[in-house]
Design a protein around this nucleic acid. Structure first.
Lengths: 220, 220
DNA sequence: TAATTTTGTTAGAATACTCTAACTCCATAC
DNA sequence: GTATGGAGTTAGAGTATTCTAACAAAATTA
């Protein structure tokens, strides 16, 4: 079985590829905060195990085997996050850190019991899909809030990132998954948006925020 | 902070010393299933960090600092075992394996929340005391069943070991913590005992089993 | 296209943990 | 009291993961 380090590389690769369509060694190196040669040699190692496709100077991808391994780690991560929120009462802004560690626990009964206790959830507390036991994962087909137009009514479905700072920012504005929002105006210069929702009649969100909010279009 | 490996050495040392009064490098080596030279060099490393007292060819002990570190790992282990049993519905025979991994998670809020959700338990599912946040641990003052005499009435309070095989053996005989037992007879030859409890009127327990059952004397 | 910057690679080394082989110390048995 | 066996030690090496330094390839910019 893959080591903790290897699992982290596979997971990072999986996330990079699903977010940007591709990944390079320097993407990995900066995401995992290791030097370029370190990432380089780990990639060679993973290639040898038939977990990544790799040719010198070419972009990286996961093999089927690698995808499956990565998705199973992601499954453990997201089940854990959901467990921490729904069963242990943690806020969504703290669970990522803990789940980063628990995702490497090697115990199928532990995660199966979590899954069972929660009634087999399909998304984590940030709206990301939880892969199934075979490593299959639902496509994320949501739009970014930043691509919406003035007048659009949308529902907040998921977040593209789950850094604590970002989640606290949302907490401070009462922005939770499921909230229905209306786009009041869009600033062409910097892409910031003014939106209304619940009892917030006019909240300004900067472009980096709007990019990370994934929404379902209700009407426009 | 101590690495996972270091934590395992400290915990092993703590348990050996509290069970046998002392520990040697070969005790450690066999408990942790590493070679003697491996244990030897790790002990030198721990001595350098002022976690163990060690002089060449002499028995080992933990420094105050080492005891505290070890007790905090044990706290995480035992809180986890209790959580797995009381909050997640696992049997006491499977929790040790999972707790062996979770005890190394570095997150005080995680374990504090466990503790809180369970109402600050003082013992784990096998009757062993849970050290407090400062690493203080209650003395275990119980007797071994093996030291009891014919006619003694006792209550099962704790187990000296928690290997799955042993716990399944107890499960098969409906032996749980709290059960009141009476010593019917003792076989001088091999130290095995016949006891009665609940709806078991005559159950034979071998000496290794009786040694591992910790009891409180009710009357004799 | 030539120059520059970014990205990727190789070489060589450090740290943590592990091992086997070979030797030494020490307690105990005769 | 010496021989012997178990316990402890040292030396030397291997694996996994990481780094820096130096160089090469590819992409971008001028």
């Amino acid at each position: 079985m893959a080591s903790v380090t290897e699992e982290n590389y596979l997971k990072a690769l999986f996330i990079l590829v699903s977010e940007r369509g591709m990944a390079t060694i320097s993407d990995l190196s900066s995401l995992l905060k290791v030097s370029l040669p370190t990432a380089n040699s780990m990639i060679k190692n993973l290639k040898k195990q038939d977990l990544v496709n790799y040719e010198k100077y070419k972009p990286l991808s996961l093999t089927e085997k690698g995808k499956r391994e990565a998705a199973l780690v992601l499954r453990k991560h997201r089940l854990t996050e959901m467990f921490l929120v729904t069963q242990m009462g943690f806020g969504w802004e703290v669970v990522h850190e803990i789940a980063e560690q628990i995702e490497h626990i090697d115990s199928s009964i532990f995660f199966e019991r979590m899954d069972e206790l929660m009634g087999h959830p399909t998304i984590d507390p940030h709206g990301s899909p939880i892969p199934d036991k075979d490593g299959r994962i639902a496509e994320e087909v949501y739009e970014q809030l930043s691509s919406c137009k003035v007048g659009d009514k949308v529902r907040l479905i998921a977040l593209a990132h789950s850094a604590a700072d970002f989640l606290k920012y949302l907490n401070n504005r009462d922005l939770q998954l499921g909230v229905e929002m209306k786009v009041i105006s869009v600033e062409p210069f910097d892409g910031s948006m003014v939106v209304s929702y619940s009892n917030h009649s006019s909240e300004t969100l900067t472009h980096p925020v709007c990019e990370r909010l994934r929404v379902e279009l209700l009407e426009h």
